[in-house]
Amino acid sequence: MTTEVTSPRAKRNLLPRIAFGGVAGPLIGLVLLCIAFSFASQYFLSIRNALNVLDQVTVLGILAIGMTMVIIIGGIDLSVGSVLALSMMSMGWLERMAGLPLPLAMVLGVLTGAACGLVSGCLITFARLPAFIATLAIMSVARGLANLLTDGRQIVGYPDWFTNLATVRHLGFFSVTVTVFVVLMIVAGIFLRYRATGRNLFAIGGNPEVARLAGIDVRRYTILTYVVSGALAGVAAVTLAARLDSSQPSAGLGIELDTIAAVVIGGASLVGGVGSIAGTLIGVLIIGVLRNGLNLVGVSPFFQMVVIGAVIALAVTFDTMSRERK
């Protein structure tokens, strides 16, 4: 937390700065939460439960990667939950009804998500709709299409190997879906931190006009960001289908708000220009640990909602306060 940098100390402080990348606040929150739950429930502190939590946050986490980028450029993507449902249903429809091989259907499912993102991006850049409205429209359209494909019915009957992607823990640790999640997180983290393209996203969110004058093609970047967010919703859809062993048109209802909450808990600013994958990971884990821990402790479902809301407010308050103190 100490960024009191006088020149001789600067070098020494560089290491923790890189390691935590300015996410010390949310990290402290996560650690406190884990400590609290370890005392409250005998079942919480175990490798198996930790793996369960990772398993449970996979879908939220994959969505949050895309949302982080969207929020960094100062946008918002309300459509991720519906796009997830549409990708999931088109994958199922292509495999079950159109008879395509499942691996191909999986790829096409991801592309469906990307296509939705492309539409959102074009609405925002060419039709100049505010991101909130453009993605709200796509949210409704995608949810409707997802239901239309099968007239609201879910699709079941995937082969065993598909479900095994989510359920079989290789070497006793990571299932394929969790591995995909972790790899995507690492790739996105490196992209946002060490690639010029990633750094440019921060400039666009900080001030699009400054970015444009600095030679950045703001439009192209904006569209691509929404395409990536849509494609990641597609990946999350495949993951969720494997986890549920079915495709459901009602999947991901309201998950966009959890996703936004996770990103903001992780220190991103809804105004744009600020955010990090490390922070988002912590935000996602805070939400996951909270739900998991409260279930393990056996807190009433109604009280759970109260606690989760309070923790979101607290987490973001601490973050804002520590920022202002700097």
Binding site: N207, E209, V210
Partner: peptide
């Protein structure tokens, strides 16, 4: 402030 600098960065 509007076109030259990212004030928050």
């Amino acid at each position: 402030k509007g076109q030259g600098l990212l004030l928050k960065q």
